[in-house]
């Protein structure tokens, strides 16, 4: 039986791991290779790396980081952040990513998803959706450019289009919950689950196993977290033991 995944996320800026709250206030949190290796040993099912570098040299460094992480990693590596062209995505795949995630550029140029999918297959293409509750509280809209741009695009309509556009997975981050440790955005997750058959990774807000259980029950196939792993509050294996007791199918060591 297919198990539910726990995915530690590394935000990378200029070759270093950083962590912020609501996509801002970035602090240095370590070496990506060391951390990826530790997470792998601790039972991570996959690693997501998001390049948050704002500069060209930072993005070049990200390719080096992907190569270095790939050398030590025997589990899947998904890479996203600032991917604006098919060539950029192909370079990341050649460097050792198994999947690439597109976000802002896909909103601006939806054909990017299909072009990429035609080249590498849908299973390598992740549509990253950053969603925020609308200011009137009525539904969710897609936000881009690290949350600074509210697009007005309905997040559910966008998620519904993911499969036909050529994506093989959705990484759904709640802008409202990110970094809060108040739990995943369960209503958003349930709503997205209702409009797509693609695998959905829940992201933003995890503090403990209970939050992850809620996300799985709301229809997530995988849960992503950053802070709780950086802070060494817990490990994927520890969370899996707790989740298994609640009846969630997980890969045990």
């Amino acid at each position: 039986m297919l198990t539910q995944r726990i995915i530690p996320c590394l935000d990378i800026d200029n070759g270093r791991v950083v962590k912020g709250v609501k996509f801002a206030d970035l602090r240095d949190a370590g070496d990506p290779v060391e951390q990826a290796q530790r997470y792998q040993l601790d039972g991570a099912d996959e690693i997501v790396m998001l390049d948050v570098s704002a500069t060209t040299s930072g993005r070049a460094t990200a390719l080096e980081t992907v190569r270095a992480v790939r050398r030590v990693l025997s589990i899947p590596l998904s890479v996203g952040g600032g991917i604006r062209s098919v060539d950029h995505a192909l370079a990341l795949l050649a460097a050792g990513a198994d999947k690439v995630g597109v976000n802002s550029a896909a909103v601006e140029h939806p054909e990017l998803v299909g072009d990429l999918s035609d080249r590498v297959g849908a299973q390598c293409v992740v549509l990253s959706i950053d969603a925020a509750l609308r200011e009137d509280g009525n539904g969710w809209e897609v936000v881009t450019r690290a949350g600074t741009n509210r697009t007005g695009i309905d997040a559910l309509a966008w998620a519904q289009r993911a499969a036909e556009m050529g994506a093989g997975e959705i990484l759904l981050t709640s802008f409202d919950q990110d970094g809060t440790q108040d739990g995943y955005a369960i209503k958003l997750l349930e709503a997205v689950r209702g409009v797509t058959d693609l695998p959905v990774i829940a992201s933003g807000g995890a503090a403990h196993a209970r939050h992850m259980l809620d996300a799985f029950q709301a229809g997530a196939d995988a849960v992503l977290a950053a802070s709780i792993f950086h802070n060494q509050t817990t490990t994927p294996n520890q969370l899996k033991s707790e989740l298994a007791e609640s009846g969630v199918e997980v890969r045990m060591p």
């Binding site: 039986m1 297919l2 099912d45 093989g168 693609l198 995988a222």
Partner: peptide
Amino acid sequence: VRTPQHGWNA
């Protein structure tokens, strides 16, 4: 069933 099958299976 979920497709693509992305993940670990026994």
